[in-house]
């Protein structure tokens, strides 16, 4: 029994989500291999080789793998799939893009967003926006799985010394082409891995008002997040969205400001260790999950809180 973890990276840096997926692989048992498919991605392979618990790193390095096109990456995974009992992807935008393609080609069911491993063929996963947890058992020969990163503590990035083996890259599918990427620049920690998250909702009222959260986030060393309402209203960029259809976060501290707490938002943050809600409506559902709630006008409370820290 050997598990293959597909690395998430940008050709220069191994993303933290990979280390959470390796942790899930370790729970399944057996050897853990990591596949790095990219272009000029040797540094990523070396980082993966240093991760605790990794026995071997496969590196497929070619220009057609540079941008993570689903067609090419899936073909690369399939080229080595026969050696593995489990194939794990982090449940990130790219992992969710590629994993089902691999599963369908192998004619197996895919298991999405697991948060627990009961045995080598039985896993827990949330359904209905996290309002129910299903335990599912797979009878397929190969288990193709995406791992919810907040469900598993990352393995150490250092301490391992796996060998890196170069493998032949698959040919370009020729059916899709990468055109461009627009990455939002930010000096703040990455939302999905942040220790503290400060999130704003419709209660902020405008994109201009959203800046009231900046000093608070700076004081706390926090990532900024947003509810869907705030994103749809244009107060915050899309990739800040926390919720069922946005990012799933589980920081030590989650501060929800002007967020009512719709089911879809709670699905993205209710596993946070400590939740603080600041809202002027004492009946807002967010108070139902908050450890500490403060009823008040956020335009007074947020600056006051920033000052008190």
């Amino acid at each position: 029994m050997t598990t293959l973890v597909i690395a998430e990276h940008d050709n220069a840096q191994l993303k933290g989500a990979t280390l959470n997926a390796v942790a899930a692989a370790a729970k399944i048992g057996g050897d853990v291999h990591v596949l790095v498919a990219g272009a000029n991605a040797r540094a990523v392979a070396d980082q993966a080789a240093a991760a605790a618990g990794v026995a071997k790193v496969l590196l497929a390095d070619a220009p057609q793998l540079a941008d993570g096109l689903a067609e090419n990456v899936a073909a690369q995974v399939l080229a080595v799939a026969s050696n593995y009992s489990h194939i794990l992807f982090p449940a990130t935008a790219s992992g969710k893009n590629v994993a089902p393609r691999v599963a369908a080609k192998l004619d197996v069911a895919q298991i999405s967003d697991i948060i627990g491993v009961e045995s080598a063929d039985t896993f827990q996963r949330p359904i209905y926006a996290g309002n129910a947890i299903a335990t599912v058992q797979s009878a397929d020969a190969v288990k193709v799985i995406t791992v919810r990163t907040t469900g598993f503590d990352a393995v150490a990035a250092q301490g391992g010394s796996a060998a890196v083996e170069e493998i032949a890259a698959v040919a370009d599918s020729g059916k899709s082409t990468f055109v461009s990427r627009e990455v939002a620049k930010s000096d703040r920690p990455e939302l999905a891995g942040a220790r503290v998250v400060v999130s704003g909702g419709r209660g902020l009222g405008s994109a201009e008002n959203f800046k009231i959260l900046d000093p608070l986030a700076d004081k706390l060393g926090a990532a900024l997040g947003a509810s869907r309402a705030a994103v749809d209203a244009g107060y915050a960029p899309n990739d800040w969205q926390v919720g069922q259809t946005g990012k799933i976060v589980a920081p030590q501290l989650y501060v929800a400001v002007g967020i009512s707490g719709a089911i879809q938002h709670l699905a993205g943050m209710k596993d946070s260790k400590v939740i603080v809600a600041i809202n002027k409506d004492p009946e807002a559902p967010i108070f139902g999950v908050a450890d500490y709630g403060l009823v008040g006008d956020l335009f007074q409370v947020v600056p006051e809180l920033t000052g008190a820290l």
Partner: peptide
């Protein structure tokens, strides 16, 4: 496409 960290643009040959 909406991806982690921003947007990306792809061109697909139809059918798609």
């Amino acid at each position: 496409r909406e991806v982690d960290g921003g947007l990306e643009v792809l061109e697909l040959t139809l059918p798609a």
